[in-house]
């Protein structure tokens, strides 16, 4: 064999399934081969191809922190063939995982900086990986601010972890729901994420902003950050594109001269501005 088969997945067992929100689940996956589990390393921002044998593979970020070894987590919404098959799985079932692929958030470069996480809906998972990575190494970083919103209270993911973050003294967490999405006992903000970010007015001094969400949320949040003097180099996001191989060969995720699976999924706004709007 000239090389190992890069399309052969790790065999993973679903250890825990959490229902996060309507249609959204989190899987905690452990390696069936314990040695592979011990050897596995990844960095914040990377993704994998999660596969149901017989149905196909799907791309999600690795939503757990690299500081926590022995398992990985992914969070997904049921949408098409593979995610529907995944949603049908039970704890104990076996699925495939290929990874880690893609580039990483340069969190080592951010030591000492203030971090602002801005996320909407199902787009919190890629940032959750970084958040826990940072919180597990808390004293290396400055202020940590999280602005997270969803359409309704029910649609918020990681509800228990939101509580954990809220109770910590070293994180500023602002949660919001769209107008009309609040419940009678909702104590968080009401308003679209970009509006809440504007209201919070985080300082751009010595700061990095990570923005993940539906295209419209990103589109409206970027001008807010610009007004707060964030430069394009200070703003990070993750791109999604249709993917199959995850290793830069099948051609699907090619946008401009970048391949989202190799040059991303993490991009700065400066890089995004360079890309054709084909994603």
């Amino acid at each position: 064999m000239i090389a190992p088969n890069i399309y052969k997945p790790y065999l993973m067992r679903i250890e825990k399934i959490t229902d996060e929100a309507p249609g959204i689940k989190t899987f905690r996956l452990v390696f069936t081969d314990e040695q592979e589990g011990r050897d596995f390393r990844f960095k914040a921002g990377q993704f994998g191809e999660y596969g149901v044998f017989g149905e196909g593979e799907c791309t999600f970020c690795i939503a757990s922190s690299p500081t926590r070894t022995g398992y990985i987590e992914c969070t997904f919404r049921q949408a098409g063939r593979v995610t529907s098959a995944l949603a049908d799985r039970e704890e104990g079932d076996l699925i495939g995982f290929r990874g880690p692929y893609g580039n990483t958030f340069p969190i080592d470069d951010w030591q000492g900086k203030n971090l602002i996480f801005i996320a909407g809906g199902i787009a919190l998972p890629p940032l959750r990986c970084v958040i826990w990575n940072v919180l597990d190494l808390r004293d290396r970083y400055g202020d940590v601010t999280i602005v997270y919103g969803a359409r309704t209270v029910d649609d918020l993911v990681y509800k228990h972890e939101l509580e954990e973050w809220r109770r910590r003294g070293d994180v500023k967490l602002i949660t919001t729901v769209d107008p009309g999405g609040e419940t009678p006992d909702w104590t968080g903000e009401v308003g679209f994420v970009p509006t809440i970010v504007e209201k919070q007015a985080p300082s751009a001094a010595n700061a990095v902003a990570l923005v993940c969400g539906p295209p419209i949320m990103i589109k409206l949040t970027l001008p807010v950050l610009a007004k707060l003097d964030f430069t394009p180099d200070q703003i990070y996001t993750t791109l999604e594109n249709r993917m199959k191989c995850g290793v830069g060969k099948c051609g699907r995720c090619n946008v401009g001269k970048y391949f989202v699976c190799k040059d991303g999924p993490v991009f700065t706004l400066a890089q995004l501005n360079d890309l054709p709007p084909e994603y």
Partner: peptide
């Protein structure tokens, strides 16, 4: 060289 990946089972 672009290709699709599919499962049949």
């Amino acid at each position: 060289a672009c290709f699709d990946i599919q499962d049949e089972a």
